[in-house]
Design a protein around this nucleic acid. Structure first.
Lengths: 207, 207, 207, 207
DNA sequence: GACTAACCGAGACGGTACGTCTTGTCTTGGG
DNA sequence: CCCAAGACAAGACGTACCGTCTCGGTTAGTC
């Protein structure tokens, strides 16, 4: 929805700012160029100079609004329309089915080449500096984690699952497994790849 | 035990190789310098030129034997005496206890600063190119995975666990969770951090 | 007077050139550093990296504006205030005396250590690639050659010299002899060293 | 006839030299490879490593017998069967004709591509270090100079030329002009190119 | 309607690291 | 002792980016 920038926008209290406004066209061109270059050549060959050239933009316009290449990548990937599935889980009668359905959807995101290269780009960006990692996990992974934990906790309250289990650890295990499979380039990833793990976890969560 | 090099020596059949032999001293100096620099400044600031200078070695001597910086890092970390715990699990009466003990040991590896920075270096190296990832997961993660899977499978054969569970998926979930916690710099990692997850998994594996 | 660069600026018609202007300070620092290093260590030990370090300049700034080390040297030497004597010959009554005086001056340029090392640097640079040689002989040797030929031709028109002689060949013989003596490091060069040759040549030119 | 080497061979008095004798095959292969590479790629792209590879010889075998690349080049060029014309001048009745004929022959050496590239290689080698220059001019240029000077002096003794002229300066002027034309890559060099200069010089030498 | 500040494109700047090449030395094993 | 092979330390090569810094030129407000 909103990118962050390192110039604190301070939202609604700017008293009087003369001067030209930030160019929305430039911002969008930069993010689009970044996405294109990631898909074409991968994160490792990405350079600020390359993004600027592709976007038809000066390098300073990037440096003015983002503190590092990895932050540009975070914005570029996460500000896409539907980069990854972050919706809450369904609430049908069966927690088992809701969890499986949701994990299938997330897995499918990671299966298609574009999704996989996006995940790998984010992983590489996060491994470059802690600040990016913080930003990334706060804005994406954490959202998924909470979606999953919330549904499990609801089920526990409804008596479907043991109430004393550590749902956060379970959610981490599921999401970490998917990330692990994608980053190690396991090629046989399918929408049901996490099912055997879910079998064990859900059985272990039963009262 | 043995590093790989990209010049395949074709093992035992080279009849007569003229020329000066590879300098063991140089090889060790390079690996030691790499380890030192990773601990001092992190993987991101590592450079071939820096390694060469620190090791008192020409750059060509590195390029002659390793195809990329990431491969040097893999060798440097994994050829240490005891970089990480890769021993098989104990075989006491209780599979639960054996698994917990082993995971505690691995977790402790990742807890100390040196271990954490090694893991992060390996992760960053692996995310740079697929070949390194292949090498890394073949020589390290795979070893741990097999150690864990073997113990679980034995327990299943002994009737302690359900025989139809996917032990590989379970092992991946444990190891991936640890990696995830380390790379996201979760600071509160403790030797028992994986216990809540193990509770659920082991309960789910019971017959 | 003006250095050349390999980016043809197309002189006076560039309508609008965006971007930061070329730094005159950097240009001068590079040329000064080049001159200093030639005098200190000779042309053979000259390196682009060394010039850049001495001038406090990035290597790219050199590569951006000059195509090769030898071209830098040509500019560095020839853009000095008074690198060598290139003025026209005097026009007194006696062509003999005018030629002798002028040759004495040129010889003196080559006698002092700085002049000799400059000549040797130019010679070495010219022997490295044809383009540099072309540039060098067009901008320096040719100027001297014309100065000498012009005076001889005037004398011929005044009836002092045979009109059918090849003055260019005579000028070449004088200048080539001087270059030859300098580059072969004949140590006994004196301002009158060319006089015996001039005796023969001028006598041969008389009507 | 004999190359020089930097290990003084001390000729006939070696009391008892154990060990393998110097390989004549290696020496010839090195010189031939050097000549080939000069003709193919020019002096500037010549490297010791390249010569060794082409000659099927170890680099040390070159370093053991020659102190520098330029010395190898001097030997390689000058030890050819007929690299350049160094014979004495003819002694017919006319010194004019003898000089012209001899200069024509020398000029023709320099006209053919192989000869020109040899001259340029020698010039470049000589400009690299004084020792090579010394060696080169002692073994080649000096020979030609003396040949020319001797014929002129004989003519002076026979009363054909002024006895008080500086024949050495005249010889230098002729040879230096030729070198100058070749190294500046004057393309229109012909066997009679020096004739206009000789006209003036010989007229100036007449009693 | 001019001022004026901030933004924009372009691109030069001082640097750092890259991966390759060459130099001259050293080591190995065979002749 | 010589030789072919080739590893070694050193360091220059020319390229690619980094993040910073001018340049004009272009928008917006505010006087």
């Amino acid at each position: 929805m909103s990118d962050h920038g390192h110039r604190t926008p301070s939202e609604a209290e700017t008293p009087a700012t003369p001067g030209r406004k930030r160019s929305e066209a430039a911002r969008l061109a930069i993010l689009a160029a970044t996405r294109d270059l990631i898909e074409e050549h991968g994160y490792e060959k990405l350079s600020i100079a390359g993004i600027a050239a592709r976007a038809g933009v000066g390098k300073d316009t990037i440096y003015r609004w983002w503190p590092s290449k990895s932050m540009v990548v975070v914005d570029a990937v996460l500000l896409e329309d539907q980069p990854f599935h972050t919706a809450p889980l369904a609430r049908t009668a069966s927690v088992d089915q809701d969890v499986r359905d949701w994990v299938h959807t997330v897995t499918q995101d990671y299966m298609e080449p574009a999704g996989a290269s996006r995940v790998r780009a984010l992983t590489a960006a996060a491994s470059e500096d802690p600040a990016t990692a913080q930003m990334l996990y706060g804005r994406y992974t954490q959202v998924q984690r909470i979606a999953l934990v919330d549904r499990l906790r609801e089920a526990a309250e409804a008596g479907e699952l043991r109430p004393d289990a550590d749902f956060a650890a379970v959610a981490d295990a599921v999401l970490a497994s998917l990330l692990y499979w994608v980053t190690t380039r396991r090629t046989d990833l399918q929408s049901g790849s996490a099912d055997p793990l879910l079998d064990v976890l859900l059985r272990g969560l039963r009262p």
